[in-house]
């Protein structure tokens, strides 16, 4: 320690250099990240618009030859909407009830801990493995046909952990005072959950579900293994191969001619639009219904 401390010392050049150097690196990292990501969006939009027309949205690929222009993704859009809707029908009730169990009924026992652990594990299940499971169980062992329903089951495996986690988080945010107030009025536990807890957490749960839907709507691998391919419109998800938008993009992208590539871009654009709308809706719900509009 020096006896006389000088006036306000300038900080050393090395420290200033490091500070500015890191700042430069951070800006550079951001620039590096933005370039490819913007390029992806730009190419999808600019190339996708070429075929993003009424014919594309209302026609299937039936009777479209390998090198023909024209054709559309109507069958794939129908397929994706049906498969995602069915997947939600399976995973939302199961996921919600599981979350209710974890938050409201599960005492700190072994069952609760193992369910919680396996929800985490399930989050990490690769989508192709979920597809393989339905393939092995539903199609190979039970001998069922490829169908939209099989795809929906595979997607619901991917949706379940997301729904459980987000619903669990929202239920835990419901203040305990509310539950106790309800119990104090002599309301039974299950009615408290249904009438007080779930409505309070409702918007949060809806947001979580929509984000989960947006995530699985873009999954390709499980569909490839369970829904298979078709070029025709099949409106019945329980019978015979269907198509899905991600599958459509994959299929068209692998075809070595420009008209197919154009269709692939248009399909990618359609898919992104659907997913962005879901995301946007989820965000708007959170924004409008958030109690304090904190941010």
């Amino acid at each position: 320690m020096s006896a006389v401390t000088p006036e306000i010392q300038r900080i050393s050049g090395m420290r200033r250099f490091k500070d500015k150097g890191v700042q430069a690196l951070v800006y550079l990292a951001f620039a590096i990240a933005v370039v490819p990501l913007v390029s992806v969006l730009w190419l999808v939009i600019s190339n996708g618009l070429a075929r993003f027309d009424m014919e594309f949205l209302t026609h299937s690929m039936r009777n479209i030859g390998a090198r023909d222009a024209g054709g559309g993704a109507y069958h794939a859009i129908i397929g994706t909407l049906e498969q995602v809707a069915l997947a939600s029908l399976i995973s939302v009730p199961i996921g919600l009830l599981t979350a209710v169990y974890l938050v409201e009924y599960g005492t700190n026992g072994r069952l609760k801990r193992s369910i919680s652990f396996f929800v985490d594990i399930m989050t990490g299940v690769p989508s192709v493995v979920a597809g393989l499971f339905i393939l092995a169980f539903w199609i190979l062992i039970l001998g069922m046909p490829f169908s939209g329903w099989a795809g929906a089951m595979a997607l619901s495996i991917l949706m379940l952990p997301t729904v459980v986690r987000s619903a669990e988080e929202m239920l835990m945010l419901v203040p305990n005072d509310l539950r106790e107030a309800s119990y104090a009025l002599g309301v039974s536990k299950w009615r408290t959950i249904v009438k007080v807890v779930l409505p309070t957490a409702f918007t949060g749960i809806v947001t979580g579900v929509m984000l989960a839907i947006a995530r699985v709507a873009g999954e390709t691998a499980p569909l490839l293994l369970t829904v298979f391919f078709t070029d025709s419109i099949n409106e019945d998800p329980f019978n015979g191969p269907q198509m899905g938008l991600p599958l459509y993009v994959f299929d068209q992208a692998a075809r070595p001619n420009d008209t197919a590539i154009d269709r692939a871009w248009a399909g990618a654009l359609t898919l992104i639009v659907i997913i962005m709308l879901l995301n946007l809706a989820a965000r708007l719900i959170t924004y409008w219904r958030s109690p304090a509009r904190k941010r």
């Binding site: 006036e7 306000i8 900080i11």
Partner: peptide, 17 residues
């Protein structure tokens, strides 16, 4: 005599002092 908000003063060194 030293202006803490002078243009050549680094806030970091002010906080150090």
């Amino acid at each position: 005599e030293q202006d803490l908000y002078g243009s050549d003063v680094d806030p970091v060194s002010v906080r150090r002092t």
